[in-house]
């Protein structure tokens, strides 16, 4: 049995598999010729073990549970704290957005949402605008220097955020950029560089070069080629990178918690934390809290429904190739 793992037998295995797939007649007659080569061939459906059936049932249960949880959270946001606590499974009696109004006005979620939208939008846009040309250069110019540079950018992928927390705070404090959304934006841009450059370099490499070469032959400069040929071709990848940054900046908590102190500059996650902490003193406002959670989650849900497959591909890019 262990011989099956050896290279030699693997090649024979592959050869026989290929003949099987192309449907050519080999020495052993294939039993059911009609269903060969397609994904639903009998060979692939052969295992109907009880274990597998259990697995399928469990998976669908997980799916149902996830959807129920999400809907449940939305529902609770329309109920008041007392009825939530007395019957956690109850349905809202009305769709009056009292909790949202209260969270919006009392809990400072309005300012926080505004800050989050601005910060997320600006920093993601600038991140991609800076990373795209860099990634283009790194993907198109060969040589040891470029390799070293690529490495330099990618190094940051392995550094946990808590490492830079204290030095960043000290440095920004010296130039009066702590407790400032401008400072936070700058930090987000710097911290996002490794992943964005990594993703876009891989993406630019996957683009065909023929059109760029044709443009060069027609006398277009390298800059013009980049702007007129490569960028339009790379629209999809750049949008993916942008949306992935939007998601990560929207959810970023540790840096914002450290660098922002005044309430009117809170981003959503920081406002949510402060809302949770206030409850210790002012009594639980679960209705308002659920409304706050919805404000954090819903934009992500909308983006996911809008661009779902693209995001999964972006986040798993390279893993499956």
């Amino acid at each position: 049995m262990s011989t099956l793992n050896k290279p030699a037998s693997r090649t024979t295995m592959r050869r026989s598999a290929k003949t099987a797939a192309t449907g050519e007649s080999g020495p052993p007659k294939r039993p059911r010729k009609s269903a060969s080569g397609t994904a639903s061939s009998p060979a692939l459906r052969a295992d109907r073990s009880p274990l597998r059936t259990v697995g399928i049932v469990v998976l669908w249960l997980i799916v149902a549970l996830s959807i129920v949880m999400l809907l449940w959270m939305l529902m609770q946001a329309f109920r008041d704290t007392r009825s939530i606590l007395s019957d956690p499974w109850g349905l809202p009696t009305s769709l009056a957005p009292d909790n949202f109004v209260r969270a919006w006005t009392v809990g400072d979620f309005a300012t926080a949402t505004f800050n989050s939208v601005i910060t997320t939008g600006v920093s993601s846009l600038l991140t991609v605008a800076l990373a795209a040309p860099a990634a283009y250069y790194l993907s198109r110019v060969a040589g040891r220097f470029t390799q070293g540079l690529t490495m330099y950018f990618i190094l940051g992928l392995g550094i946990p955020a808590q490492v830079i927390l204290i030095p960043l705070f000290v440095m920004l404090n010296q130039v009066y950029l702590t407790d400032s959304l401008i400072g936070l934006n700058l930090v987000y841009i710097g911290v996002s560089m490794p992943f964005t450059v990594f993703l876009l370099t891989a993406f630019f490499r996957s683009l065909p070069l023929e059109m760029e070469e044709a443009a060069a032959l027609d006398g277009a400069s390298a800059l013009r080629t980049f702007v007129r040929i490569t960028l339009p071709l790379a629209k999809g990848g750049i949008l993916t990178a942008f949306v992935l940054e939007v998601i990560s900046h929207w959810n970023e908590t540790l840096l914002a918690l450290t660098l922002i102190q005044s309430t009117e500059k809170y981003t959503l996650p920081v406002a949510l934390i402060s809302f949770v902490q206030q409850q210790t003193y002012s009594g639980a406002d679960w209705g308002g809290l659920f409304a706050g959670l919805c404000i954090v989650v819903l934009p992500m849900l909308i983006i996911y429904i809008w661009l779902g497959r693209r995001l999964t591909e972006g986040l798993t890019l390279g893993m499956g190739k």
Binding site: L149, F153, P167, M171, L186, I189
Partner: peptide, 13 residues
């Protein structure tokens, strides 16, 4: 990209 990344990520590290 290099400058922002160096100042805000590499130097703090």
């Amino acid at each position: 990209a290099f400058i922002l990344y160096t100042i805000l990520f590499v130097v703090p590290s």
